[in-house]
Design a protein around this nucleic acid. Sequence first.
RNA 1: CGCAGGGUAGAGCAGUUGGUAGCUCGUCGGGCUCAUAACCCGGAGGCCAGGGGUUCAAGUCCCCUCCCUGCAA
Length: 357
Amino acid sequence: MSGTVRIMYMGTPDFAVPALEALAEPAANGSVSRELVSVVTQPDRPRGRGHRLAPSPVKARAMEMGLPVAQPESLRGNAEWEETLANAAPDLIVVCAYGRILPIETLRYPRLGCVNIHASLLPRYRGAAPIHRAVESGDSETGVTLMYMSEGLDEGDMIASRSMPIAGIDTGGLHEALSKLGAELLMDEFDAIISGTAGREPQDSSAATYAPPVKKDEGHIDFSADAAAVCRKVRAMTPSPGAYAYLGDEKIRIWKAEAEPAEQSGLREDYSNNGRFSEGSDRAAAKEPDCAAAKKPDCAGPPAPGKIIGTDGGTIAVAAGQGETVTITMLQSPGGKPMPASDWLRGHIIGKDTAFR
RNA sequence: CGCAGGGUAGAGCAGUUGGUAGCUCGUCGGGCUCAUAACCCGGAGGCCAGGGGUUCAAGUCCCCUCCCUGCAA
């Protein structure tokens, strides 16, 4: 039936799965019928422990749903790809985190164009790591944008966007939420895209910002930053690439940390003996050892950033910059699994001068 | 066949050169105290991941399997 729209979906990681599932659903009553004629994803690559060849999440899901999958090595000047495209003869290509730049020939192929789901409120955070950067920057909200693709990096005209508050959610949580939000947005705009009545607003390039890929070492927490910044960093880097700091020569992953209100940091009078310091279990002593050691009459100097200043109540209080305190509530030793700080503390004796670096 | 660290009591860990399983927390009972997430005393709770082997004797040594984790991709 000529009334059926042929769709090609291109995506690779988990983030692209919800949209795939949504497209695979039969169209709702009253909508134009559609057929997902081809799912394109990155070739299986050796991944994970053991370097076993593994399919991408999108491929795995597509196979489960019995959809035809194509995994071209390259899209540029590749006869195999041209053939795939010609056979699928898509009217529309939907792209979501495919992982490769689409050549102009491909962008021009479908009569209804190519649309892309991007995990930010464009024109902010064009590029590879929009979610990480939004969290790291302390933005109060982020979202997803559906747009027509152009040759530039995430520069296409916007169809619509949807926002959500970031609140205390980490990158992992937002990743999941935004992937679903993106799928919803796609479906809501779907009929309009088919009928050619979808919105088409050019991006204000002067307001554009870029979200460069996150490098591994960006996860190394610098405790000399203020407490709020440390916590943002932890949330931004969780679960990937992971926030960490060194305790001795052990690389400790930090999964959750909270900024302790400044006004509270100064007056924690409850020196519970719960915190098991190896000697002189008095937390007060642990709090100002520098002064004592330096024989300074004035003990107003805050503990050095990174120093563990207390382990009350099953959490780990660490000195941050500006005399502030960050409380670690979930962490992971190398080779171990992530665990609440209370559990972690059972197996680790913290000395008075123990500090993260 | 990428590299590496693990799987021991409900939780987190220790267990030295092989010799009958310990610690902290929790839990149960009792005590102390004006009081306590405090302290004291006592108890319960483990086929030491699974399978094979070496040995008088294996958590501990050797081989295999399963599972977990970090790194690297």
